[in-house]
Design a protein around this nucleic acid. Structure first.
Length: 1025
RNA sequence: GCUCGAGUGGUGGAAUUGGUAGACACGUUGGACUUAAAAUCCAAUGGACAUUAGUCCGUACGGGUUCAAGUCCCGUCUCGAGUACCA
């Protein structure tokens, strides 16, 4: 009986679908286990073999946990809002919903072929109104909440209003906007409704405010910080500029500390935690207020607040620097300096963010003419502006301490500002001294002689006493912009009355995306939803109505922005627990049973986006009592990327078709060199040059001079003749090369034209690229390829998988040719899950061969081989060794080593000619998480009618592995010389005696007496001397 | 620049608390079977030397600790990822 994988796999995929084998119940006596993959975005290109890597790993774990008796939740769905579908819509007019649907269907088809144990009854799509109803719902919850620093959690906005009514806002300790005006209870009651709403917006966890945003003209939308890479948009690489716009924002900064603290509680990869830590960017220091001095031309003193992590260096301040955008700049600038300052501001505003970042070296700035008073010395300090100070960080102003900060130092040097030294015994003539560990403060009044930590404490104490500063913790994390000027995203459940946002009642959700004619911004520059004609909210009827009806009395305009990509993915893991629920985002029964994700697998690129925002929303949901855990995923693994192995052919570019060397090459006349031949040419370019110049030398002389073997020389000579011959055939007038240089152009060849030995299918290539129709190929043996006389070997290079590099391999082809089980095993076999590794289809014959070999343990030409024979000792030893190792490996996510273990097991059982059912049944279960189709087939052939998924995992029995003796490696001075089998119950002295008595030992020692004999029972013997 | 991670055969990668370096595969070479191919099976395969026995070298490089180092410590180099004027 043959291993017919295509038939077997189709059969079991159908069986699982029809029997809903992997449907998870929300009510179960079994312990729960939640295994989740990161939401895929269904792109038009479909899956390549790199994508399923994490899915296969999580599937193995999920299946393993089922065998171990857990109730496993293993869902899959689609993050289906997003830019590519919208860009496609702009180009073609096709509705993104249609594109998305097509792409999802293709994804599903591909996923099904790999045999995943997903519970498809729980599938969600972020673009489905039944799903985004709950995204809108969460948004409303955030709107109706504020962050109380005293209770350190989010609370209902009603509790804030109650406080305002009772005692105003003076005692409110909230995370809120900076420009809060103090008011009393009486004031509050006297405010108009509009004023009250404006004030509340300053406290809400999602709020509308004019903020400086990253505007991307190329995409026509704003972007979050994590969507920008190196100053350009992550998608499309378009330039990004700073711009002030009224946008929805999320007060994620309220959670900065808790997001940091929470990292200690979760088992996530350290690099990922590090990047979140850096992103949040906590720094401890002090906020200090400097007051500007009143002068003849500026008649008022302004307070300049700065943040510093080195308040201990305050006596080293010799100037202050404000960001050019700082709001005080126009007010403090003196008339004499006005022109210069304004010119500087204009110049910096013109420079894009990218230029500013790329050009860190150039120092620029301008003096405002203003002076601030030093809080302690009362000395005047000049106030400068400079673009090395960022408006968005801290207060947008720094106290510059050139002796202790390199940037301040460079700025001072450049503008000839004094650099006072306040460090004891440190030379600062060349560079600033920023090491706080060894710093001892000098020239600093009451700080003299103090080390860093003590000085900081003292300064803060003094500043607080004067009321000019206090200890402060600053975060780099900014509030997250939540508006996108796009069509294909969740609409906000928001309408506007007198320009103020109003939430639509949750009972009327979802507010579904309106139809539009065009997906581009409107002519007046409004987002695409501005094109919608039915996009107004009727507060009487509670429905979306035509824009014509807007009267600003009962019918109001709706929000035109949509939500960003991360909105839909920030609670999806909880929605999977109860995805069909229309009454609530999930039932309390469901969330209380499933709690949180036990294992989350996905790429590390989501470190500061999805994974941070999701943690933020989860903490919010926790504060509001909707979820029982404030971290949504206990354990997270980043799977590595699978790269492609590109194939190259090497086109010789030195032949000219006419005497006019500058004339265009004839692109149809190509000479293509095999990889080995190219290497040979490169290594012996001087020799070839000599041959070309016909330098008369004997073979012996050449071999001497170039240290070549005669065979290699003959090959080179043959090659040289071949090249001349090829040049003649192609009509080149010469073969042109120079010492040290050979004109070669590497070109990507489609990897499907290359076999497992890197041999190129030349006919295939000629058909694929017409310009090579008549090309001459020179093979590995240095001959012009004409039929079977020589082979063309491609060069190989590891690159990212991409269409343009012709190195994309799709899982479908692999499943077709080798089967899903071979693919699953091979993806795991490639290497550790977390590591990135290159794909090379050639290797799959290894795992495919293994499956065939395993099949032959159960069947031969005559059918079933298995029987009820008693297993031998060796059989049991092999099996239990395998159980132990595989179980350990799965628990440690070391899937590559368990594939090896299976191979060893099958190799051993084959040698042992094992046919015992008592061995072969448990073996099928062991393999089933990895290769579920073949396992199901074997299981049913063994006579079982239920799916193998229900079978309990084999239990490891130590007794089968107990040995009575061990092959001891016997080393001399640390070098292993021979093996010696000795009983394991022999003690140290016994071992030493046995080893010393051995003839090989005596031979090694050659009569010497060893200085020392190290015996580690059960491990090794080392004889020294 | 800073932070983190990694360097082992021709290739992907194994190697438990320091204890036989190169498991398991791919590829390569040779052989068996076959009209032939595929498939399958057998053998060899880190490098150098040696007829055999065997010897020497070898886990990026240079030191060190140890009876013993891929593994621990110090320094250097290279590559990858993240981040980037963060006061």
């Amino acid at each position: 009986m043959q291993y017919n994988f295509n038939e077997i796999e189709a059969k079991w995929q159908k069986f699982w679908a029809e029997n809903q084998t992997f449907k998870a119940e929300n009510n179960s006596d079994k312990e729960k286990f939640y295994v989740l993959d990161m939401f895929p975005y269904p792109s038009g290109a479909g899956l390549h073999v790199g994508h399923p890597l994490g899915y296969i790993a999580s599937d193995i774990y999920a299946r393993y946990k089922r065998h171990k008796g857990f109730n496993v939740l293993h869902p899959m769905g689609y993050d289906s809002f997003g830019l590519p579908a919208e860009q496609y819509a702009i180009q073609t007019g096709q509705h993104p919903a249609i594109t998305t649907e097509t792409n999802i269907n293709r994804y599903r088809e591909q996923l099904d072929k790999i045999g995943f144990s997903f519970d498809w009854s729980r599938e969600v799509r972020t673009s489905n109104p039944k799903y985004y109803k709950w995204t809108q719902w969460v948004f409303i919850q955030l709107f109706n909440s504020w962050y109380n620093k005293d209770s350190d959690k989010a609370e209902d906005i009603e509790s804030l209003i109650a406080q305002f009514e009772k005692e105003g806002n003076s005692k409110v300790n909230a995370v809120c906007d900076d420009d809060i005006v103090e008011f009393s209870a009486a004031d509050w009651k006297g405010f108009s409704n509009t004023r009250q709403q404006e004030i509340l917006l300053q406290y809400r966890l999602t709020y509308l405010a004019e903020t400086e945003v990253n505007w991307c003209p190329g995409l026509g939308t704003v972007l979050a910080n994590d969507e920008i890479v190196n100053g350009v948009s992550e998608r499309g690489g378009h330039p990004v500029v700073r711009k002030k716009m009224t946008q929805w924002s999320m007060r994620i900064t309220a959670y900065a500390q808790r997001l940091l603290d929470g990292l200690d509680k979760i088992d996530w990869p350290q690099p990922l935690k590090d990047s979140q830590t850096n992103w949040i960017g906590r720094s401890e220091g002090a906020s200090v207020t400097f007051k500007t001095m009143v002068s003849d031309t500026v008649g008022k003193s302004y307070p300049i607040e700065v943040f510093t992590t080195r308040p201990d260096t305050i006596f080293g301040v010799s100037f202050m620097t404000l960001a050019p955008e700082h709001e005080l700049v126009p007010q403090i600038t003196t008339p004499e300096q006005k022109a210069e300052v304004e010119a500087y501001i204009e110049a910096t505003a013109k420079r894009s963010e990218r230029d500013r970042m790329a050009d860190v070296k150039t120092i620029s700035g301008a003096f405002t003419g203003a002076y601030a008073e030093h809080p302690f010395t009362k000395e005047p300090i000049p106030v400068w502006i400079g673009d090395y100070v960022l408006a968005g960080y801290g207060t947008g102003a720094v106290m510059s301490v050139p002796c202790g900060d390199q940037r301040d130092y460079d700025f001072a040097k450049h503008f000839n500002i004094p650099i006072p030294n306040i460090f004891e015994g440190v030379d600062i003539s060349e560079e600033a001294f920023s090491d706080k560990g060894s710093a001892v403060i000098a020239n600093s009044d009451f700080l003299n002689g103090l080390p860093y930590k003590k000085a900081v404490k003292r300064v803060i104490f003094e500043l607080e006493k004067m009321g000019q500063g206090k200890g402060k913790i600053n975060y780099r994390l900014r509030d997250a912009v939540f508006s996108r000027q796009r069509y294909w995203g969740e609409p906000f459940p928001v309408y506007y009355v007198d320009g103020l946002p109003q939430m639509i009642d949750t009972e009327h959700l979802p507010i579904t995306l309106p139809e539009v004619e065009k997906y581009l911004p409107t002519e007046t520059g409004e987002p695409p939803l501005g094109n919608a004609t039915v996009w107004a909210w009727d507060t009487k009827e509670n429905k979306v109505v035509s824009n014509d009806l807007i009267d600003h009395k009962t019918i109001f305009p709706l929000e035109l922005n949509t939500m960003p990509g991360w909105a839909g993915s920030s609670q999806y893991f909880n929605r999977y627990m109860d995805p069909g629920n229309d009454e609530a985002i999930f039932s309390q029964e469901a969330i209380n049973y499933w709690q949180d994700v036990d294992l989350y697998i996905g790429g590390s690129e989501h470190a500061t986006g999805h994974l941070l925002y999701s943690r933020f929303w989860q903490k919010f949901m926790f504060d509001k009592g909707f979820v029982p855990k404030d971290e949504f995923a206990k354990k997270l693994i980043n799977q590595g990327m699978i790269t492609g192995t590109s194939a190259f052919i090497y086109v010789y570019d030195g032949g000219f078709v006419s005497n006019d060397a500058d004339s265009e090459r004839d692109s149809t006349k190509n000479l293509i060199l095999s990889f080995g031949v190219l290497q040979l040419v490169r290594e012996n370019i001087n020799l070839l040059h000599d041959l070309w110049k016909k330098a008369p030398k004997s073979d012996f002389e050449i071999c001497e001079e170039y240290s070549l073997k005669i065979d290699d020389l003959n090959l080179i000579k043959r090659l040289y003749q071949t090249l001349l011959q090829a040049a003649e055939r192609l009509g080149y007038i010469s073969i042109a090369w120079f010492r040290d240089f050979i004109p070669i152009r590497p070109i990507h060849a489609d990897v499907s034209l290359v076999n497992s030995s890197d041999e190129l299918n030349i006919e295939g290539l000629r058909n694929w690229k017409p310009e090579f129709k008549n090309a001459i190929f020179v093979g590995e043996n240095g001959s012009i390829i004409d039929g079977e006389n020589d082979r063309y070997i491609v060069g190989r290079e590891v690159e990212k998988m991409s269409k343009s590099k012709y190195n994309v391999v799709s899982p479908d082809e692999i499943c077709e040719e080798y089967g899903a089980d071979s693919l699953r095993l091979y993806e795991m076999f490639l290497g550790p899950l977390e590591q990135s590794k290159p794909w090379n289809t050639a290797g799959i014959t290894g795992t495919h061969g293994f499956l065939k070999k395993m099949w032959r343990l159960y069947f031969d030409e005559n059918g079933a081989k298995f029987n009820d024979a008693e297993p031998t000792k060796d059989n049991l030893k092999t099996l239990h060794k395998t159980i132990k190792k595989v179980e350990e490996d799965i628990e440690n996510f070391s899937f590559n080593t368990s594939v090896s273990t299976f191979m060893i097991c099958v190799n051993e059982l084959s040698t042992q000619k094992c046919t015992s059912r008592a061995i072969l049944e448990p073996l099928a279960i062991l393999v089933s998480p990895y290769a579920p189709h073949i396992a199901e087939e074997l299981w049913s052939q063994l006579g079982h009618s239920e799916s193998i998924a229900t079978a309990p995992f084999p239990v490891f029995d130590e007794s089968h592995l107990v040995e009575s003796s061990k092959q001891y490696p016997i080393s001399f001075n640390g070098k292993m010389r021979f093996m010696l089998e000795l009983p394991l119950d022999l003690d140290k002295d016994g071992i030493e005696a046995a080893v010393m008595a051995h003839e090989k030992t005596q031979k090694q020692l050659e009569g010497r007496t060893p200085k020392k004999v190290i015996v580690v029972p059960g491990k090794i013997v080392n004889i020294v001397g």
